[in-house]
Design a binder for these strands. Structure first.
Lengths: 214, 214
DNA sequence: ACACTTCGCCCGAACGATCGTTCGGATGAA
DNA sequence: TTCATCCGAACGATCGTTCGGGCGAAGTGT
């Protein structure tokens, strides 16, 4: 393997829904790696250029500004999360438990598989311009609403027992988001394993407890 | 109230274990606010100076460098988390369920009450020097070990049923860490309420499920 | 009680480095 | 000829930090 790319050692950084190619794609990939490791403000245009193998000024042939590069990445990550979760839930059928399982599986799987993308999305919201931040938050909110809808409907039809819908949704979301911070490919668990375990854990959070004889 | 301080509108930024006072304390407080909102690299020495009401050069009468300011904050946050969790667990008695409840309550309560401190601690590990980062990670690890110890002992004595100790510990930790990102004083829930709910949710994660007749 | 020194804290000015970005021009494919 | 892409050089702004000095409180010798 002489064409081994240190950037893509066995793992894709961008999801299939990414439409960019060529230098712009490479730019987004190195931006993901750098932003994910050191943060948006901790990475300079010159850092990105060096990692991409081009000159700093050449970057501006592909993006209007550094912030727009972050915005593109952020939108891609958030829409990917929302779309995969939507699709998974739609394919899960009418049972609330199946819907919750599907949502958590998609959520967790995405945060592991594209963990750099997820990190940047969850950390750098404040680095966006006010307009861009609001646009991203809109996408984010629709995904949160989907989860809360599953929970409240599950409770309404008697499938779930939930103390506080908001708090439980926050807890379930948190489990997945944090996966992007510790999971790494080649580690103890595959992304699928984590997704499966966390889907069952999420179900435990909404299931009525039966007292077991002590 | 003419002495109202916009920095401390009804909430302490630093925990009681903070020993600093005077200008250094004020510096740590404004650093928490600024780092928490825009990130370590997104805040300049001049930003901090302006927020603290002093000149940029005056900062160096209290800290050796910007990174050392972050390190002090980071150590304070991590030791506070570890110590309050330790104390809570020790006071909880021998029952695994009580220990887990105590740990989660302390963990969550701290992440809500000192949310800016928790944010900086969880976000800016990579901004520390390698030596400082390792020192902080040491404190962090000891707290994680405490939680995992509670879980594994609880399973050993038959109080808990756990699919994967590491994954469950990560999930429980994640719930609390994320609280620092969305909770705010004066919101829907008090810190105590969230802590109580999440303590029960954590217990659900380690309790054997009973199949309820469908 | 006095003068004198020390020290903590703060200031304004400035250092070299690096920041995001722009510009004019070169190159090659369409 | 046009257009996308890249380059080297440079712009003004801002970065973290240093330096010399001012100033009031605390300590010291007499």
């Amino acid at each position: 393997m002489s064409d081994a790319d240190p950037l893509e050692a066995g793992a894709e950084l961008l999801p299939p829904s990414a439409t960019s190619d060529g230098t712009l794609r490479r730019l987004q990939e190195v931006a993901l790696e750098c932003f994910g490791e050191r943060g948006y403000h901790g990475v300079s245009i010159r850092d990105l250029a060096k990692a991409a193998g081009i000159q700093p000024s050449s970057i501006y042939a592909h993006v209007r500004s550094k912030e727009e590069l972050l915005f593109g990445i952020s939108m891609l990550g958030h829409t990917t999360q929302r779309d995969t979760a939507d699709a998974a839930v739609l394919a899960a059928g009418p049972e609330p438990a199946d819907q919750l399982r599907a949502y958590v599986r998609a959520h967790v799987h995405m945060h592991a598989t594209y963990r750099m993308l997820a990190r940047v999305c969850n950390r750098e919201l404040a680095a966006l311009s006010p307009e861009h931040e609001q646009e991203v938050r809109g996408v984010r909110e629709s995904s949160v609403r989907l989860l809360q809808g599953i929970l409240s409907r599950g409770e309404r039809v008697g499938a779930f027992t939930i103390a506080d819908s908001f708090l439980v949704a926050a807890a379930i979301g948190a489990m997945g988001i944090r996966v992007a911070e510790w999971w790494e490919p080649g580690g103890e668990h595959t992304a699928d394993e984590v997704a499966d375990v966390y889907a069952e854990l999420a179900l435990k959070l909404v299931t009525k407890q039966q007292l077991v004889a002590k």
